[in-house]
Write a protein that binds this DNA or RNA. Sequence first.
DNA 1: AAAATAAGTGCAAACGTTTGCACAACTTAT
DNA 2: ATAAGTTGTGCAAACGTTTGCACTTATTTT
Lengths: 337, 337
Amino acid sequence: MSQRPSIKDIARIAGVAPSTVSRALADSPRVSQATRQRIQAIARELDYTPSLAARSLVMGSSPVIGVISPTLSDPYIASVMKGLEEASHRAGYQRLVASTQGDAEREIEMVRMLLGHNVGGLIILSSRAQGAYQELLTQIREPIVFVNSLHTGEHVYNVATDNEHGGWLATRYLLTQGHRRVAYLAGPTRGRSHVARAAGYRRALEEAGLTFERQLIIPGDGSIRAGREALHWWLNQPHAQRPTAIFCYNDLAALGLLSEAHQQGVSIPDELSVMGFDNVPMAEISIPPLTTVEQRTRELGRLAVVSLLTALENKPVTDIFLRGELIVRASVKPMEA
Amino acid sequence: MSQRPSIKDIARIAGVAPSTVSRALADSPRVSQATRQRIQAIARELDYTPSLAARSLVMGSSPVIGVISPTLSDPYIASVMKGLEEASHRAGYQRLVASTQGDAEREIEMVRMLLGHNVGGLIILSSRAQGAYQELLTQIREPIVFVNSLHTGEHVYNVATDNEHGGWLATRYLLTQGHRRVAYLAGPTRGRSHVARAAGYRRALEEAGLTFERQLIIPGDGSIRAGREALHWWLNQPHAQRPTAIFCYNDLAALGLLSEAHQQGVSIPDELSVMGFDNVPMAEISIPPLTTVEQRTRELGRLAVVSLLTALENKPVTDIFLRGELIVRASVKPMEA
DNA sequence: AAAATAAGTGCAAACGTTTGCACAACTTAT
DNA sequence: ATAAGTTGTGCAAACGTTTGCACTTATTTT
């Protein structure tokens, strides 16, 4: 019936001062064995849970990590979240998660709100607010880790996939399989990851002595629909100019492409090889199973937490770039000689 | 350089008392037009953001909804989250999200922690801690909404899919397509949703004058792997006894089944019809596209928030059961007469 | 012109913690 | 036996808000 018990209630029952209770509960050595046990017993009896609001008020921060993400319904994000969750839980931190629907303004607003909650630090996934941080980042005293978007500042750290390398790896593999006309299905135009993957694609081409052709970049945004449309783009190319392989910005688009190909009667990989990026769970069970470049998403999440916690201890933190491996499945086929 | 500005800093600059600042910022009518504007200007100037910790301490609750989920990496959960996010943001609430990895004990622990943060109320997705709440639910004063798991208690509300109806809908459709041997690929054994879907399956069979056969229940847990294994179960049945259709607990398992069927050279739907449940995004692009029963996940999330907010206003709230529609695609084929 | 009402502001308590400092009661070393 | 240390406990301030109450001044009403 009563309100939640507070430290004062325990103090009254135990016949001691609130401060003693606080110390006893924190296992401070400044309280005797006997009282400590008595107090802890009472606390358990009353089913006491500390007010984190009060604690965070006096301490100036709380064991909570603020997490900001453009969405929660993307399998790539979901996997990063999983890594975040595991690592932060192990470290005794909770997460206050906010999603922005990709709205840059809302992203900034969320940063403010989370800081108002005295979160210890912030992890921001795939930020969409590149410029908007300029002012903000200098004012903030809490550490911020950006995942897969690069920022700089005093308390700012980065954990990211080496997308340039991934793009290079994917493209080079297609080339070693004998493909000579390789298209790239683009991701969100302003996104850094897209730009980097495209750069890797280009480097691989040039290293192989091929010239980069602008018209082999298929517009897209990393959605399933973009993959669908890419297939129609391909169908509309004059036969002679059709690429024999397409490297897709991500698995989602690649999966969309696969599906549309099946509906249109285009055989993958016989008529067209398809390469994805991310290695989402579905890539394993698509038809055909998708050849892709792994993105170590769980690890990305884990390392973001580690970086943040390290920064919170005022230890030095360096930016981290993760490389994923090529996952060979069945959506790419060697060209006949 | 300084700390975050507080209401006192503003008060000092404006030459008024902190209380006046508080009122001015809250647009209270008890402060004059002039001072209000002056104060708000200063606040904007200083880039003031209120300490939600302090506010929540004095108010006894904060505009935050605690959300607990067994995982974040399931597309069904992701979609519910999306609904939660949209609705709560619109109402000016944030979300404190914790995931439990399906661990019942951790679920209880999370409830405690979130309440320690003075969250206004709790939304719990697909609870895995059926029994463990008995004691807890009577003590808690904050409203709790369970999504897709049924609980009762004074401040306890439910928003759920009518799984029995969905199971019935799916099975009846298979029967109207002429199938007579229909198997059910089970979900997590202890889960309520599995039990309800199975009940609907059984009811549909019996309404059609067929007898429920225990050996047509294929064990599973709603994972991709369970779907894979279900195909092998099917292959191992004597030809005469093989079901001509399988109703799967969820899309994930159905997708796994589809993939394995392709690898084993079993043609879907020619040799075997497959029905899913959930209508996850991937169901649309699988090969063949998956016939399934929609689960209105976004709506589930939205309504959970609405229920919680209504309860917070001390208005009456009733439990909600949502029915999804049948989504006919291509993984089910009529039996030849 | 006095009394009642309204409008604007400030004081101080409260929310539930943590923690520096002071104090008392014992020990131990001189 | 005194000084010095140790051990356990309590007091009170602080964290940043909100809000009931009291107070002043200006505006009405009689």
